[in-house]
Simulated assay, not measured.
Amino acid sequence: MIALNTNKITPFFQKIKTSLSKQQITILQINLGRRCNLACTHCHVEASPKRTEELSSKICQQLIQLINLFPQLETVDLTGGAPEMNYGFQPIVEAARKAKKEVIVRSNLTIFFEEGFKHLPEYFAKNELRVVASLPCYLEDNVDRQRGKGVYDASIRAIEKLNQLGYGHDPNLVLDLVYNPPIPSNKKFSLTPEQIKLEKDYKNFLKDNFNICFNQLFTITNLPIGRVKNYLQNKELYVPYLEFLESHYNEQTLDHVMCRNQLSIDYLGNIYDCDFNQMENIPATLPNGEALTIENLLKIGNLDVINDIKTADYCYGCTAGSGSSCGGSLI
């Protein structure tokens, strides 16, 4: 274990000078498990083909209860690992669509070419799932360095298939791409590029070279957790990177951070304020300090039971520059 001196970092709760409170919950983000066909270098979940953790039948049924019980929920956001590979994916998709919820699937696209999953593009289109897919760059070398050799080519072929089914054209079939910057290898840190300009660059390149299209580009900052944290620690860049993020803190992002109106749920049924707190094992709690789970949330019968959001130093990653969330930049 590397000893880390973070004394130079202002604790996030001190920086914001007030508690960060929840708004009405409208989004459930569910991590179905850590099984994945890839092992990307930027994955904060540390998913891979070797991981076996996934949803149980009991938790799956509780999640479906939760989706059916609360009309205020607008979106069910499915992630992983590769969410499609983990137990409960289809039952939750179909329950949420039946309940008239928007369903997001955070797909790595390459899953379409794995045995047993080749039906997914048609399944996505049939259920009008919103696809949010990682494509860390529009250039092949950059993508394959982050995600593995051949991933870029497979991703392009997957987008071509989705376009053929109407994604990117039909307003009910939305395909969004996600930009992740390379993990910094030295102290020449930089914020994510301006989202609207980079989206234009992506669209022009992909249209000109492959005649493919998509709806929006989301730029997401690499937070120093999971594999990114391990890499930065090994390079002695963890604290300098946090200092860089803190130096670009933008208080205007606070009203828009994703933890305000979202609950993040893991495959064990534990509840967190966001996906990053989930990976760092910082559970959301009731006002009495009790850790929140699906089970006690169903007993209470109310989604809006969290007063204060749990924060940590890596929250600077969501609030630096234009901000960062699962839906891209914040301002």
Results as ranks from 00 to 15, higher is better:
Met1Leu: 12
Leu4Ile: 14
Thr6Leu: 14
Thr6Asn: 14
Asn7Leu: 13
Asn7Tyr: 13
Pro11Trp: 14
Phe12Arg: 13
Phe12Pro: 08
Gln14Ser: 14
Lys17Leu: 09
Lys17Gly: 09
Leu20Gln: 12
Leu20Ser: 11
Lys22Val: 06
Lys22Ile: 06
Thr26Asp: 12
Ile30Val: 09
Asn31Val: 10
Arg35His: 12
Ser48Asp: 01
Arg51Pro: 00
Thr52Tyr: 01
Glu54Ala: 08
Leu55Val: 06
Ser56Trp: 10
Ser56Pro: 11
Ser57Phe: 13
Ser57Arg: 13
Lys58Asp: 09
Ile67His: 05
Gln72Ser: 05
Glu74Cys: 10
Asp77Lys: 05
Tyr87Ser: 14
Phe89Cys: 01
Gln90His: 12
Gln90Asn: 15
Ile92His: 05
Lys100Gly: 10
Val103Glu: 11
Val105Glu: 02
Ser107Leu: 04
Ser107Gln: 07
Asn108His: 11
Asn108Arg: 06
Glu114Gln: 08
Glu115Ala: 01
Glu115Cys: 00
His119Arg: 05
Leu120His: 06
Asn127Pro: 08
Asn127Phe: 10
Val131Ile: 15
Ser134Leu: 01
Glu140Gly: 05
Asn142Thr: 07
Asp144Ala: 12
Arg145Lys: 15
Arg145Asp: 01
Arg145His: 06
Gln146Met: 07
Arg147Asn: 00
Lys149Gln: 04
Lys149Met: 02
Val151Arg: 02
Val151Phe: 06
Ala154Gly: 02
Ser155Gln: 02
Ile156Leu: 03
Ile159Arg: 04
Glu160Cys: 11
Leu162Trp: 02
Gln164Pro: 00
Gly166Ile: 09
His169Ser: 15
His169Glu: 15
Asn172Gln: 13
Asp176Thr: 15
Asn180Gln: 09
Pro181Asp: 03
Pro182Gln: 08
Ile183Tyr: 01
Pro184Thr: 05
Lys187His: 10
Leu191Met: 08
Thr192Trp: 02
Glu199Ala: 08
Lys200Thr: 14
Asp201Gln: 13
Asp208Thr: 15
Gln216His: 15
Gln216Tyr: 11
Phe218Thr: 07
Thr221Phe: 01
Gln233Phe: 07
Lys235Phe: 02
Tyr241Cys: 00
Leu245Cys: 04
Asn250Gly: 13
Leu254Cys: 02
Gly269Leu: 05
Ile271Glu: 03
Tyr272Asn: 12
Cys274Lys: 03
Asn277Val: 09
Met279Lys: 08
Pro283Gln: 06
Pro283Gly: 06
Leu286Arg: 13
Pro287Leu: 11
Glu290Leu: 15
Thr293Val: 08
Ile294Phe: 07
Asn296Trp: 04
Asn296Val: 07
Leu298Gly: 09
Leu298Asn: 10
Gly301Ile: 09
Asn302Val: 09
Asp308Val: 15
Tyr314Phe: 09
Tyr314His: 04
Cys315Asp: 08
Tyr316Pro: 03
Gly323Cys: 04
Gly327Glu: 09
Leu330Trp: 05
